[in-house]
Amino acid sequence: MGPVIRPATPADIPALHMLVESAFRGDRARGGWTHEADLLGGQRTDPAALAEAIADPDHAILIAFDGDVAIGCVEVKRAGSGRSALGLLSVRPDRQAEGLGRRLVAAAEDHARAHHGATRMEMTVIATRAELIAWYERQGYCRTGETRPFPMDDPRFGLPRVPLSFIVLDRSIA
C-alpha cells in the first residue's frame, strides 16, 4: 500500500510548509533534483499563503502521507473556461524518484475533473528548468508557446538570483 493522498487541512500547514521549503529551497533541497536553490533564495511559500489556498473553494492542496509523515503535495486551482492549474508540486528530496510526483499529478488531474469540471490542466514552470520541463513533457504536458513574467520583486515567491520567467505547459485531462 502506497502513500495516502488527501486534501490538506489547516492542521497540516506546519508539515506542508516544511515539506515545500525542503523540496525547493536551501541546502536540504539540493538532495533532490527538483530544487530551485540555485535560482532563488528566500522562501517558496509561507503559512499564510498555504492557509489562504486551503480556505479558498477554488483551490485545493493535496498532501501525501507515509504514515504520519508528509512526503509530497500538489496544488490545484480553478483557472476558468474548463481549465485548472497545477502548482506547488513538491516531493521530499529523500523520496524523489519513487513515482510519487506522477501519483500527485494524477491526483491533481482527478481533483480538477471532479471538483472544477476541468478538461485541461495548465501549469507554469521556470523557463530555465529544462530537466523539470522534460519530466512534465513525459507526463503528457506540452509547451503552449506562452510565457509569463516571474514576480521578481515579490519576496513571497522567493528572491531571484538571476532573471527568471515562466513558460506555460498544458494538456487535456478530459
Rank of each mutant, 00 (worst) to 15 (best):
M1I: 04
G2N: 14
P3V: 11
V4S: 13
I5F: 12
R6A: 06
A8S: 11
A8H: 10
P10L: 03
P10M: 01
A11D: 13
D12Q: 03
I13W: 03
L16N: 11
L16W: 09
L16D: 12
H17E: 08
M18P: 13
M18E: 15
M18R: 14
A23M: 06
D27Q: 13
D27S: 13
R28H: 14
R28P: 09
A29Q: 09
G32I: 01
H35P: 05
A37Y: 09
D38Q: 08
D38N: 06
G41E: 12
Q43V: 15
R44S: 08
T45V: 07
D46N: 12
D46S: 07
P47H: 01
L50K: 03
A51F: 01
A55C: 08
D56S: 10
P57R: 02
A60V: 13
I61R: 03
F65S: 12
G67E: 10
D68K: 14
V69W: 10
A70W: 12
A70V: 06
I71F: 15
I71R: 14
G72K: 13
C73I: 07
C73T: 11
V74N: 01
E75R: 08
V76P: 00
V76R: 00
K77Y: 09
K77M: 04
R78W: 02
A79M: 07
G80E: 04
L86S: 08
G87R: 05
G87N: 11
P93V: 05
Q96G: 12
G99F: 05
L100Y: 12
G101F: 13
R102I: 02
A106S: 14
A106M: 10
A106W: 01
E109Y: 00
E109N: 10
D110Q: 07
A112V: 15
A114C: 12
H116A: 11
G117C: 03
G117E: 01
G117S: 05
A118E: 03
T119D: 00
M121H: 03
E122P: 09
M123G: 06
T124A: 00
T124F: 01
T124N: 00
I126Q: 03
R129V: 15
R129S: 11
E131N: 15
I133D: 02
A134E: 08
W135H: 11
E137S: 12
G140D: 04
G140R: 03
G140V: 15
Y141L: 10
C142E: 04
C142D: 04
R143N: 02
T144E: 02
G145E: 10
E146A: 10
R148P: 10
F150S: 06
D153C: 11
D153M: 13
D154N: 11
D154K: 13
F157P: 08
F157A: 12
V162C: 03
L164C: 07
I167H: 06
D170Q: 08
S172W: 00
A174I: 15
